[in-house]
Amino acid sequence: MAEPSTTPIRLLIADDHPIVRDGIRGMFAGDPDFEVLGEAADGARAVELARALSPDVILMDLRMPGTDGVAAIKELARLGSAARVLVLTTYDTDRDVLPAIEAGATGYLLKDTGRDELVRAVRTAARGEAVLSPSVATRLLGQVRTPADPLSTRELEVLRLIAEGGTNREIAARLFISEATVKSHVLHIYTKLGVNDRAAAVAAAFRRGLLTTDGA
C-alpha cells in the first residue's frame, strides 16, 4: 500500500451542479493524501479561486454557464497558473475533447469514472503527466491516424473571408451566394475543424496550414 504523501494534493472542484461537486468532494473526504480547497460553479470563479488558493489540480467540468471550462483553461494558461487541469465531464465528442486538450488540460476523464480511477488520475495529473479516459484516448488516436475531412474549395473561400473579418452577409455578397448557404458552409467548417466559433476556426486553420499569413 502506498505511503501517504507528506503534503496532500490540493484540489479545486469546478462544476455547475452542487450534487456533482458534493459527490467529487466525498470521493476525497477523509483521505490524508488530498485536500479540497474550494468549489466553483463556473469557469470565472474557478480562475478566481485558482489564483487565490493555488491548487495542485483543478477538476474542471466543461459545459458551465458563463465562462465555460475551455475558456477557464485558456485563462489559467494565460495567467501562468501552475495548477494542472483535469477535465471531468459527460462529453467525449471532438468538439469537447480537442479544444480542452489544445487549451492546456493535463487530462480528460468522463463522469462515469470510478473513485479509484479518479484518485489515480489526480495523482498522475499532479505529477504533470497526461491522463485520458479510454474513449478519449481512442478518439485522439483516431484524429492522428485519420486525417480530418478536407475542406471543400468553397469552404476554404468562406474560411479565408472569415479570417478577414467578414460577416455572413458580407461573405454572401462577395461570393454571390445566400446568407443561408454561407451559414451552412460555416457549420460544416466548424464540424470538420472540431471547433465552436469563428475565432477558433481561424486559429485551427492557421495551425493546420489551411491559411497562411500571406493569404495563400
Rank of each mutant, 00 (worst) to 15 (best):
A14M: 05
T106E: 14
A125N: 04
Y91I: 13
V36H: 01
L11R: 08
D56R: 08
R154W: 11
R115H: 09
V20F: 00
E170F: 02
V97Y: 02
T90C: 09
L140V: 01
V119R: 13
A82M: 12
E155W: 01
T191N: 15
S133C: 07
R45N: 09
S152N: 04
L211I: 10
V36M: 10
A29H: 14
E117C: 04
L118R: 01
H17F: 12
A50Q: 01
G215V: 00
L140Y: 07
L211P: 10
T146G: 12
P134R: 07
M1K: 14
Y108F: 09
R154T: 14
S5H: 15
G38H: 06
V136W: 04
D56Q: 05
L109V: 03
L141C: 11
V186Q: 07
L37M: 08
A130N: 14
A173G: 12
M64K: 03
A50L: 04
Q143G: 09
L132H: 00
T93S: 15
V122L: 03
A100E: 02
A46L: 05
D56E: 08
S135H: 13
R78E: 15
A46I: 11
P18F: 11
G107T: 03
F34A: 03
V158G: 05
V87F: 02
G30D: 02
A72T: 07
P32D: 09
T213M: 13
I73E: 05
P18G: 06
L59F: 04
L193Q: 09
V57N: 05
P8G: 10
Y91G: 02
L156C: 11
T212D: 15
A200T: 11
F28P: 09
R45H: 08
Y108M: 02
E102M: 13
D214Q: 02
R123V: 08
A14Y: 03
M64W: 12
I162Y: 06
A173N: 14
L79D: 13
A71W: 11
D197W: 02
G66T: 06
D94G: 13
L159Y: 06
S5P: 01
D56P: 05
R208S: 10
R207L: 04
D68W: 03
S178H: 08
M1V: 15
G38T: 03
Y108A: 06
L156P: 12
I101C: 02
T7N: 12
P8W: 11
D116H: 10
L175A: 08
L79N: 07
S54I: 00
T89F: 08
P65E: 12
L79S: 08
E39L: 07
D31I: 11
E157Q: 15
L159F: 06
S81C: 12
Y91V: 14
A148Q: 12
A103W: 07
V122Y: 06
A52C: 07
A148G: 13
G23C: 09
P147Q: 08
L109S: 09
T93F: 11
L211H: 07
G209C: 09
V20Q: 00
G69A: 04
D61F: 00
M1Q: 14
T90I: 11
N196C: 14
